[in-house]
C-alpha cells in the first residue's frame, strides 16, 4: 500500500489532478469561448476525433517534425563532431553558430516563405533550423568531454587520425548527441506551431492558429494539450530506446 502511494506521488499524477481541478474552477468564471472548461474541451476533442480532423492534423505535424528533425540530425551531428574534433573547423564555423543560434526560427519565417515558397519545403527548413542548434552544440560538448587518454590509447594501438575519429570521437560523443537530439526534438515540436501558422492548411499549429477565427477556443486547448502529450511521449520513447540500445555508450536516460 505504502509502495503504491509513493508510486502515485512519484508519477506526477497528483500534479495533473490539481491542474485539471484549477482549470475547472477558473473556467467557471468565464464563457466557454473565452476559457473552456475541461469538459467542454473534451467535447471539442471528441468532435474533431470523430470527424477525423485531429488524426489528420496530428499525422501531418508529426511527419513534418520527424522529417525536419531528421534532417537536423543528419546535418548537425556530423558538423558537431567535426567542430569538436578539428580546431580549424571550429574556428571557421563557430562564429556563425554563436550568431544564428540567438536568432529565433520565427524570425526567419517570412524570409523562408519568400525564399522557399508556401509549400512543405519552407516549413521543413524552419523546423530543421530550429532544432539543429541544440544538436550541434551538444555534439560539440560531447566531443570535448572525451578524455584525451582514449585518443592516446587508440593512437598507441596504431589508429591514425581518421580511425581515431571514427572509433573514439563518434562513439565517445554518443551520450551528449542523444541529449542534443532530445532537445532538438522538443524545439522541433515547439517550432511546428510557428511553421504552420502561416500558409498551411493542416497540422496542429494550423488547428491552434485558425480555431480562434471560429471562436473554437476548445479546439485551441485540444491542440495545445495534444502538442504537450506528443512531446512528452516522443521524449519518453526516445529515451527508452536510447537507454536500451546505447547503455554501453554511457547513456543513462
Amino acid at each position: 500500500m505504502k509502495g503504491l502511494t509513493t508510486k502515485v506521488i512519484k508519477s506526477g499524477l497528483i500534479s495533473w489532478v490539481v491542474l485539471f481541478g484549477v482549470w475547472g474552477i477558473v473556467s467557471l468564471f468565464y464563457t466557454d469561448s473565452f476559457f473552456p472548461s475541461p469538459i467542454e474541451t473534451y467535447r471539442g476533442f471528441r468532435e474533431i476525433v470523430l470527424s477525423g480532423k485531429l488524426r489528420e492534423d496530428i499525422s501531418i505535424s508529426v511527419w513534418r517534425v520527424l522529417l525536419g528533425w531528421s534532417r537536423a540530425l543528419l546535418i548537425g551531428i556530423p558538423l558537431g563532431l567535426l567542430i569538436g574534433r578539428f580546431k580549424f573547423v571550429n574556428w571557421f564555423i563557430e562564429p556563425f553558430i554563436n550568431f544564428f543560434r540567438f536568432v529565433p526560427a520565427i524570425g526567419f519565417l517570412t524570409l523562408f516563405l519568400m525564399w522557399f515558397g508556401v509549400g512543405e519545403e519552407s516549413k521543413l527548413i524552419l523546423i530543421t533550423y530550429a532544432s539543429i542548434f541544440p544538436i550541434i552544440i551538444n555534439t560539440v560538448a560531447g566531443v570535448k568531454a572525451i578524455n584525451p587518454v582514449k585518443y592516446q590509447a587508440a593512437e598507441s594501438l596504431g589508429a591514425n587520425k581518421f580511425q581515431s575519429f571514427v572509433t573514439v570521437t563518434v562513439p565517445g560523443a554518443v551520450p551528449n548527441i542523444l541529449t542534443g537530439a532530445r532537445l532538438g526534438l522538443s524545439t522541433a515540436i515547439i517550432s511546428i506551431v510557428g511553421a504552420e501558422m502561416l500558409a498551411a492548411n493542416s497540422g496542429l499549429g494550423y488547428l491552434v492558429y485558425t480555431s480562434r477565427l471560429y471562436y473554437r477556443t476548445d479546439w485551441i486547448f485540444v491542440g495545445i494539450v495534444t502538442l504537450g502529450v506528443l512531446g512528452f511521449f516522443a521524449d519518453k520513447s526516445l529515451r527508452f530506446i536510447a537507454k536500451k540500445s546505447l547503455k554501453h555508450y554511457g547513456v543513462t536516460g
Binding site: 582514449k150 594501438l157 555508450y249
Partner: peptide, 22 residues
C-alpha cells in the same frame, strides 16, 4: 616522433583507457 603501435601503453586508469562501448 609520436605514438605508434610498436609501443603499447597500459595506462594507470583502466576506466579511462578502455572503450566502454566495446
Amino acid at each position: 616522433k609520436g605514438p605508434g603501435a610498436e609501443r603499447g601503453v597500459v595506462f594507470q586508469n583502466a576506466d579511462l583507457a578502455i572503450f566502454p562501448w566495446l
